[in-house]
């Protein structure tokens, strides 16, 4: 049931929310107008992009690269701006 279909009988006592972190189903990536693209030849796998991401959506992959999860990435460009080896560029999103 979506939130907007919940009737008054479906609410928990005092409207308490019992599922921790349930907001992670929200696709904030839809807000994005630019996406980060990484050049692996320049990436030094330092993880600076990881620590500065306000969305907590950049994670280390099996090869040690840091990849933004586009489901959440809002395209702020902090990762590109802070990357010490200029390995990340922001490219415009296009209508698919």
């Amino acid at each position: 049931m979506s939130a907007k279909q919940k009737g008054w009988k479906d609410l928990e006592l005092g409207c308490v929310v019992t599922e921790p972190g349930s907001a992670s189903s929200t696709k904030t990536g839809e807000w994005r107008s630019e996406r980060p693209v990484r050049d692996n030849t320049k990436c030094i796998k330092c993880g600076i992009c990881y620590i500065y991401c306000p969305e907590a959506c950049i994670n280390e992959d099996e090869e040690g690269y840091f990849e933004a999860d586009l489901y959440y990435c809002k395209g702020c460009g902090i990762c590109a701006h802070e990357c010490p080896s200029s390995a990340i560029t922001m490219i415009e999103e296009e209508e698919e």
């Binding site: 907001a23 992670s24 929200t26 959440y72 809002k74 702020c76």
Partner: peptide
């Protein structure tokens, strides 16, 4: 958790 609605 990610999925929060803070500004960009």
């Amino acid at each position: 958790a990610p999925g929060h609605r803070a500004c960009i």
